[in-house]
Every structure is written in structure tokens, then in C-alpha cells.
Design a protein around this nucleic acid. Structure first.
Lengths: 100, 100
DNA sequence: TTGGTTCGTTAGTGGCAACTTACCGTTCGT
DNA sequence: ACGAACGGTAAGTTGCCACTAACGAACCAA
């Protein structure tokens, strides 16, 4: 998931899909300075983690951003930050006891 | 920012800091199966994007997770999803007109 | 001051993944 | 049914980044 967002090209692809709306692979290859097969590979990765969905329209596949991946990221964020605060509180309490 | 979270080792370091609370570089090197210099380099990257803060305690530096990076990520998420919906609405309207 | 930690930095290497070129399957128009 | 367009896949290369090893700096204790 975060691995998928780690690549700059994939983020550009997502940005393009976000600002330009859903579009085909060929159009994406025109807008992003990268060959068409590279686009395909990245879309495969993005699709595997639920960040994009594709829909076959004749010979061309229309890709669009999908929500599930973003939701998962948000949940991870919430849980992460909550646990970090708890762990910090524990740490403070522990060092407090050591000082005695 | 997302580049920083893209590396698995860095996520492990963050997880370690989160669950175990703040700790020094040497302790991190013990808990994460990676050499100490590698830890230093990763902490440098994580610090550059505001995900961790360090505080010099004598010869040793205590690192802890910091909020600003997470906040920035959350803001990005919110704006991303909102814009994606708008762009999708535009796209629907545009294809609707082309159908005429 | 001297020895022992603790940490940051540099140089160098190995491995992985992103990219391109070439090829093949699929689908639509004629 | 045939040609063309669109897209996914395979193989191969290149570039980048994570990692280790060695060195150097700062700090504390004696």
C-alpha cells in the first residue's frame, strides 16, 4: 500500500487520474512522460492495493481512482497516531519510576 | 514525505518508535535487524520530512515520532479525495455532452 | 588527559525495481 | 474475415538506494 505510493511515477499517475478524471491507458501514456507498458505495470500495482479500478470499454480499459485504498490508509494513520501517544505515555511513566 | 514511508525499513523504525516509545540510535539498532549507520541514515530521512524529532541527551540522541508529518499526510489525503470526486463529476458531465 | 562510548559521515558495493523494446492476444470496424 | 487499434506480458538493461565497513567527532568518567 505505502509501497505503491512510494514511487513518484505512480503518484503522478494518481494525480493525473484525480485532476483529469477517469481515462484510458493510452491517454495516460500521453499525459505522463513514460512509455505505455510502464503505465500498465504501475496500474497493476495500484490496482493490487485497491487504489484504482478499471472497467473494460471495448478494446480500451478505463481507469479511475478508487476509495478503498485511501480508507485503509486513513485507518492506518488513525491507529498509528493513537498508539504512538499511548506508547509515549508509558515511556514517560517508566522513566519517571526509574528516576526514584 | 511519502518517499520516506515508501521504504519498509523506515516503517519498521517508525513502528519500533511507536510501540516502544522514544529511544536512542543504539537501542534502535539492536531492535531492528540493520546496522547502526543505516539507522542513522533512515532517521535523517525521517527527520527531514518531520516524521521524527531528536533530542540530544549527553552523547546519545533520543528519537521520537513527531506529529507534523502525520498531519501533513492527513491533509493531503483529505484534499486528494475531495478533488478526485470533483474531477469525476466533471468527467461524467463531459462525457454526457459528447454523447449528444 | 586518556580511554571508552555513542553517534554521524563517507566511500564503496550489491540488489532490486523502474523503464524500454519487442511480441502476442483481444476487440472493433469494414 | 481481415486489418488496425488498444492493452497486457516477457525479457533485458540501467540507474538508484539501502546496506556495510572504516573513519572521525563529541561527550563522560577516571
Amino acid at each position: 500500500m505505502l509501497d505503491a505510493l512510494g514511487d513518484p511515477t505512480r503518484r503522478v499517475i494518481l494525480e493525473t487520474l484525480r485532476t483529469g478524471g477517469p481515462c484510458s491507458v493510452g491517454v495516460l501514456a500521453e499525459r505522463v512522460p513514460v512509455s505505455r507498458p510502464a503505465i500498465s505495470q504501475h496500474l497493476k500495482v495500484l490496482g493490487a492495493v485497491g487504489l484504482v479500478r478499471h472497467e473494460s470499454r471495448g478494446t480500451r480499459n478505463i481507469y479511475r481512482v478508487h476509495q478503498s485504498g485511501l480508507d485503509e490508509l486513513r485507518n492506518w494513520l488513525d491507529r498509528f497516531w493513537g498508539d504512538a501517544l499511548d506508547a509515549y505515555a508509558d515511556h514517560v511513566r517508566r522513566t519517571e519510576e526509574e528516576r526514584k
